[in-house]
Amino acid sequence: MTLDPQLILDSLPLIAQGLGITLKLLFYSSLFGIALAVITLLMRISGRWYLSWPAQAYIYFFRGTPILVQIFIIYYGLPQFGFIRNSILWPILREPFTCCVIALGLNSGAYVSEILRGGVLGVDKGLTEAGKALGLSSPQRFIYITAPIAIRLSLPAYSNEFISTLKATALASTVTLMDVTGVARTLVSQTYAPYEIFIAAAILYLAFAWISYVALAWLEARASRYVKKGN
């Protein structure tokens, strides 16, 4: 098997056509995931079992099952129920794109929720007490003290999770989406040149992962500017 570098170069612009869908998937599912993560985090730290248990069950399920299975359950599984096809949700669930955003978002939400919980647990208890002593209400303490610090503490782990989500978007190609991987697989099926084309796809993913790393590292540095250096 010889590698044809020219073919890699030639296929790059073709595969790049899928970048739009890949990035849209990444954007919307990350956003959805963050929203879910915050909600489930609040449920978990609410101290009320009837809120905390469902949140834990959700996290347990989505962290314990493969994303591909989650995508298939949502994409192929849900429409098996007639009432879902007749419900107002169908216009959303009918679309492979939204199905993927839901699956990826639910999955990422479970992980990010745990990451944020780690961040919250990492916030010095003394700061909450200082907030209490100053008369801040519990939501105020969370919003103005715990959350900003927890977010900073969560950023390194979140950066990994973001890249994981980027890579997971490739699974969208299994439910008809023409993302980077979808386009690449289609090209492969037409050209029978899997090495060159998948290498080209890998280059695109790597490039974007690198950009994400840099951006998130910058964000982390910005968020940490108040942290004392060197100790």
Binding site: A130, K132, A133, G135, Y144, I145, V227
Partner: peptide, 20 residues
């Protein structure tokens, strides 16, 4: 709440908000 509004507290570890 009423008590906390009227009572200030200083801790051994300062407990200043590090992000502010």
């Amino acid at each position: 709440d009423a008590v906390r509004r009227e009572v200030g507290m200083v801790f051994q570890n300062f407990n200043l908000f590090p992000h502010l």
